[in-house]
């Protein structure tokens, strides 16, 4: 799978439509960014520049908003989005070392994506499964009451799935 950072002309046209829809609305920047992220999966510089130019605001303003809200991402997401809950209960139950383990296996930091675009890693807030702490999610799959030792097997499962499909 190739890099999709630059998007395509078609996506750029779609983004222009999104911008046009919100252009005259006060506070239109955030809805535009939401829809742009749905479209591209993340908000690279090219997208933020197009949004800034389209809405007539400075790139600095767009970037300030994007980095303020955690739901906006500057990095592409992997096919398998790994979220590690660092909410209070999970953290107390040891989700910190679990996060570090995943980070070291995948060789990526928080918010990043593996170069092959298979995995991305995010620390997240409480996902409402405190009884299962510590919890991680891989896309929609939830894994609870985890120990660090169980992590390699979980990641391998998705690697194998990916290899099988390929």
């Amino acid at each position: 799978m190739g890099c999709s950072c630059c998007g395509t002309d078609k996506m750029a046209q779609e983004l222009d439509r999104i911008i046009a829809k919100h252009k005259d609305t006060r506070g239109g920047l955030i809805p535009v960014l939401h829809e742009a992220q749905e479209l591209y999966g993340y908000l690279p510089m090219s997208v933020q520049k197009q949004v800034a130019e389209g809405l007539g605001v400075a790139l600095a303003d767009v970037y300030g908003v994007v980095t303020f809200y955690t739901q906006f991402s500057l990095n592409p997401k992997g096919k398998y989005k790994v979220s590690v809950c660092l909410g209070t209960a999970c953290y107390v139950k040891g989700s910190g070392p679990i996060f570090d383990k995943i980070s070291s296996i995948l060789k990526i930091k928080n918010g990043e994506c593996t170069p092959d675009m298979t995995f991305s890693l995010d620390a997240c807030r409480c996902i409402g499964a405190c009884g299962l702490a510590p919890v991680i999610m891989v896309n929609e799959d939830v894994y609870g009451r985890l120990t660090v030792d169980e992590i390699p097997a979980i990641l391998d499962k998705y690697r194998k799935m990916e290899a099988g499909i390929a």
């Binding site: 400075a58 600095a60 303003d61 980095t67 303020f68």
Partner: peptide
């Protein structure tokens, strides 16, 4: 941003990581 309308720098990130930088 307001006086010069240049907007080369902005307040980015949040919380402890808040920092004034260029985009």
């Amino acid at each position: 941003k307001n006086i010069q309308t240049v907007s080369a720098i902005e307040t980015n990130e949040r919380g402890f990581k808040t920092i004034v930088t260029s985009p």
